[in-house]
Amino acid sequence: MRVEISRSGGFAGMTRTWSLEVSPAEAEERWLPLADRAAEAPQEEESRRERDQRDRYVYHIVIGYQEVTLPESRLDEPWKELIERARRGSTG
């Protein structure tokens, strides 16, 4: 299954895109549930700290039928792993 990652913002304001292929089993087990939870989660109240941040990245991640937009400050470890693999050109 194809994963497409688009990173916008940052000081440079450049949009970069990376992609990788993951097996359907891996997508079902790891990434789609994570994306479902992120997409369905009610918009949490931003902390003052998050609201005042400037020049941070925004990630838009598309996994099969699911897509999710995440500010850099809310990327937890599994997402960082996925992004790192895509950046390195890994096909997982």
Binding site: G10, F11, A12, R48, R49, R51, D52, Q53, R54, D55, R56, Y57
Partner: peptide, 9 residues
């Protein structure tokens, strides 16, 4: 890390 940012503080 390929960025510079302001974190509010």
């Amino acid at each position: 890390y390929d960025n510079a940012f302001w974190d509010g503080e």
